[in-house]
Amino acid sequence: MSALTLTLKAPLTQRVDCSPLTPDFLAGKSLSEIASIALHSGNRKLRVDALFDLTGDDSSNIIIQNSSAKLDFLGSKMQSGSLTVHGDAGSYLGFQMKKGEITVHGNAHAYAASGMAGGIMHVNGNVGDYLAAAIPGDRKGMKGGTVIITGNAGDRAGDQMRRGIVLIEGNAGAYCASRMLAGTIGVLGSVGDYAGFGMRRGTLLLFQTPKLHATLQDCGSHTLPYLKLMFKAFQALPSRFAAIDNTRVRRYAGDLACDGKGEILVFG
């Protein structure tokens, strides 16, 4: 069995909702059935084979070739298997994903990993704003799983995040970990202004001291034994975080304007 490969035929002018293109939804379907699935694009419905050339038969392992930043909802509500995207991904990558693996060799747009509850997402590139955040109307962002971003993330990464691990190897924009409820976000590079704004709980791991606003308070330097467990768990991940083994941090707690039980740990 070879991977089910969908190759985008031509550049897109309109955004396309790709939420049906998941291993679970395509399981047991023949190539002709898959070809006839309707994808929403604006006020039109387009057949899959109008947009993509299809080859392969293993729908548990889907590959999107020649991908475009206009392909939204890739891997949405995915519950098994793997999805590999060569090229950019649009908004809502892995939206409410529950299990499985998404790999993107390119950039992803806004709301990547929003509402994600499990599985692993690996973006070999940059992501837009609202990584792992809640969409408007939702009260919780990412609820579980692991996200690795090798590039940079936009503003509001981890907004209202509830659980899970987000590892950003590049920089993150403003309001990183804003309104965070729980979980762990790590940023190897820099973060923008107002990191941890409105943070209630959760952990933001940083390797450069950020500019902190007044309601985040210094709790001093500490050796935290739990970090050993955490980095041990990271060792299996395909990320630069896997090589870190440091338990010495400066702990800033806050946001005191919002309960103040969150923490920003800055490694020395």
């Binding site: 952990t203 500490h222 935290l224 034994p225 955490m230």
Partner: peptide, 18 residues
């Protein structure tokens, strides 16, 4: 503080030694 790694939940309880 609760932390989950590898499907296991751990608790970090602040005490006087850390």
């Amino acid at each position: 503080i609760s932390k989950q790694f590898g499907g296991k939940r751990y608790w970090r309880v602040p005490v006087m030694d850390g």
